[in-house]
Design a protein around this nucleic acid. Sequence first.
DNA 1: TATAATTCATATCTGATTAGTATGGAATAA
DNA 2: TTATTCCATACTAATCAGATATGAATTATA
Lengths: 135, 135
Amino acid sequence: MKISTKGRYALRMMIDIAENDTKERVTIKEISERQGISIKYLEQIVQSLTRAGMLRGERGYGGGYMLTKTPDQYTIGGILRAIEGNLAPVACLDSEKNYCQRSEQCKTLDFWTGLYEVIDNYVDSVTLSDFLEQS
Amino acid sequence: MKISTKGRYALRMMIDIAENDTKERVTIKEISERQGISIKYLEQIVQSLTRAGMLRGERGYGGGYMLTKTPDQYTIGGILRAIEGNLAPVACLDSEKNYCQRSEQCKTLDFWTGLYEVIDNYVDSVTLSDFLEQS
DNA sequence: TATAATTCATATCTGATTAGTATGGAATAA
DNA sequence: TTATTCCATACTAATCAGATATGAATTATA
């Protein structure tokens, strides 16, 4: 029942980019130094984020990453799902692999669905801009 | 970000015992047949529950398990924690292994704490009796 | 045009965890 | 004394987490 390091790092990375977005493009190297996470691991994480359309990357000299939207348009739920897939707390609710034959008769399904909802509601109620200092 | 099969099975097991508690003691064998889970796996799960004081087991002929409290006195949170340990959604909040040095300066800690709280509140707001048909 | 800086794309490795089976002992009623 | 039941621990196979490694593609600049 844990969000992986990738999910946590993705959030820190997005905050870091949002904070430094005013200047030039933000490089992985910078982020790595500020956040104390290896460049190679960050590269992997950032790819999921760019593929999800959350960041735009530009290669070569002077390249780096930038946000594609304003900070208030990113929910934390969106960021986490880009990395972790859905946040279903039990395999039974994992739409990708449609497991359970018992779901018809299952007495616990409603309970798990309720848990899924409180999680989703919470993570979608917070946006990137909530992490930025208002000046 | 998943509750394990042990956690899910523990809940089904507790409901099963609560439903059949009126009669004699409930055996693992019965539960196994009704729930379609192997005896050996259930034995492992039930031990965590008895050690947590949630069930009382009696050995030998005519033995089996029974609840130690009334169904409304079991929160689902309590049952899950007996199996899974705490339900902290990130390692940073796992009190057992006190990880993070960054927690002082961490911008995301409050967010994760909030997620932890909505999860705990939800699972503690439901009790075993909510799964029983009122007759 | 060469070079350094950067992202992009995969492959590989290691250790931990999950999910389950197996083996055998201890208690108890018939 | 035997069948039935719980109790305790060991073992195994598969998957996942958490990275590291290798190298290609792109771009500004000297």
